[in-house]
Design a protein around this nucleic acid. Structure first.
Length: 335
DNA sequence: CATCGATGTTGAG
DNA sequence: TCAACCTCGATGG
């Protein structure tokens, strides 16, 4: 699945294109027919992300909870707003290439794009005719000449349709209608999300929860009850950046180190939301930055680099299973 | 064209 | 502990 940064971006896309709009809700695939009929014709009133969970609020306090799981995705099509804060935040980020298609990447397509030549001169922030997949995978972007709304392609669990924009959900792990108490119950089970709550108190909640545990920090970072939004990529990269042995138990990691982990997750999450890419290496030269944007292999310190020399010390990066997931780490740097 | 594996979680055993 | 979920790009023949 998308790690936390993608879900925040998706929630933002919903705020920009759906909040305040009445929607037709359907389940082309049929597996959400009942929920769709409950939501159909209502107005979307809020969208928020907590860790990897997304919540869409509709009239009368009804919420749609969506978790994308391993391979879920939202496809947006129609008039899609770009986000000026992204384009303005960093000249290197959120760019499109010469043909106006999405910058290639292993992460989700960036909604800051210009697929439509005739709109290419519109100001930043204006809605643009586009088709965008938001998940961890990039994907082909369909031809734009088709009528709106486009026919659902494949297994679309939920379709949300306004006058001008459509969002199709496919492959989610969770998709259900709940009330606000249900939303709160889910959130209560989650560890803090630094984008939702950047307070020092939230950080201390992570520190105290993690410091209490006898399980490895490599598991704790992935535990959504300890801290939310971190997945397998950010786990490996955060541990490397902290030069921390993944096997050290929560108890034995100094509180100050846990605080630094929280601060670093806060930083990486913000960068991820800003760029739409899991950039985990700092201070790259322009040449290295281009390399990193082009190839995910050049984007990380350790993730998917088993058998390759550590970028810092040259020791071979190791691969092992932890928490039924692949863990990449440098046995020399992380001690 | 068939098979594999993935940035995740749940629930059965 | 592991299969299921049931998508789809990458990989290999």
């Amino acid at each position: 699945m998308p790690e936390g940064h993608s879900v925040h971006r998706i929630a933002r896309q919903f705020r920009q294109n759906f909040v305040g709009h009445r929607v037709a809700v359907s389940s082309p695939q049929g597996r959400f027919a009942e929920g769709a009929s409950v939501l159909d014709g209502r107005t979307v009133t809020d969208a928020k992300a907590v860790g990897k969970q997304m919540f869409l609020e509709f009239d009368d306090g009804l919420w749609l909870r969506v978790h994308l799981g391993l391979y879920g995705a939202w496809d947006f099509a129609g008039d899609i707003h770009s986000d000026p804060t992204i384009a303005a935040s960093n000249g290197r980020m959120g760019q499109t290439n010469q043909r106006g298609t999405v910058v290639d990447g292993d992460d989700e397509a960036d909604p800051i794009l210009d697929l439509d030549g005739e709109n290419s001169l519109h100001s930043i922030g204006a809605p643009r005719r586009a088709r965008v997949r938001m998940s961890e995978q990039s994907s082909p972007l369909a031809e734009l000449d088709e009528r709106f709304p486009p026919e659902p392609v494949g297994q679309v669990r939920v379709r949300l349709l306004t006058d001008t924009t459509v969002a199709d959900l496919r492959g989610p792990t969770a998709c259900e209608v709940i009330d606000s108490a249900g939303v709160q119950a889910v959130i209560d089970r989650l560890g803090p999300d630094p984008l939702l709550d950047p307070s020092a108190e939230a950080g201390e909640r992570f520190v105290s929860r993690a410091h209490r545990k006898g399980s490895p920090i490599g598991l704790l970072l992935m535990d959504q009850q300890i801290v939310s939004g971190i997945g397998n990529v950010y786990r490996a990269e955060l541990l490397f950046r902290a030069r921390l042995d993944p096997h050290r138990t929560g108890k034995t990691v100094p509180e100050e180190t846990l605080r630094e982990l929280w601060a670093d997750w806060t930083r990486l999450l913000a960068i991820g939301v800003e760029t739409g890419q899991m950039m985990t290496m700092d201070d790259l030269s322009p040449a290295d930055y281009r390399l990193a944007m082009a190839n995910r292999a050049d984007r990380h310190w350790v993730y998917k680099r088993e058998g390759l020399p550590c970028r810092v010390c040259g020791t071979n990066i190791l691969l092992e299973e932890m928490g039924a997931r692949k863990l990449y780490w440098c046995p020399n740097c992380q001690r």
